[in-house]
């Protein structure tokens, strides 16, 4: 997927929330990314170091939590993981399955420093 556009989204969301919290600086970002969201961590990190310069997020560390994919067989209801390749249901060999986990793609939280004394809403 297009890592630059995505990294820009992450930066914008983090800066918005940091400003709203009156933060002076963002130190850490916690991202939750499903196995099926084709995002290359290294590439996000590469763009991040460049585009976060001069913002509240400069120098912040990106943490990626990877969520493995899980499928549910539509035939027999068995739930199973995706090893590397697409696989049929281990119980009944049906190829009809539904993705129940692994599509996550969100910024879960940020860690900030130097919050002002304005009360949080």
């Amino acid at each position: 997927m297009h890592e630059l556009a995505i990294t820009q989204n992450i930066l914008r969301i983090a800066n918005e929330h940091a400003a709203r919290a009156d933060a002076q600086r963002v130190t850490d970002l916690y991202l939750v990314i499903g196995q099926l969201s084709s995002i290359v961590d290294d590439s996000v990190q590469f763009y991040w170091d460049i585009i976060s310069k001069g913002t509240l997020c400069e120098g912040a560390t990106l943490h990626f939590e990877r969520i493995p994919a899980r499928l549910r067989c539509q035939q027999c209801g068995t739930e199973y993981g995706l090893e590397q390749e697409l696989t049929t249901c281990p119980s009944c060999q049906s190829a009809r399955a539904q993705v129940i986990q692994g599509e996550e793609f969100r910024l879960e939280s940020i860690e900030v420093e130097g919050e002002g004394n304005r009360s949080k809403d």
Binding site: I6, I13, A14, A21, E108, S109, E111, V112, E113
Partner: peptide, 16 residues
């Protein structure tokens, strides 16, 4: 002093 700010925002939300 550092603290955690909960965001829980989909990264594609602006496009969506």
């Amino acid at each position: 002093m550092s603290k955690i700010v909960h965001v829980v925002e989909d990264i594609m939300s602006a496009n969506d």
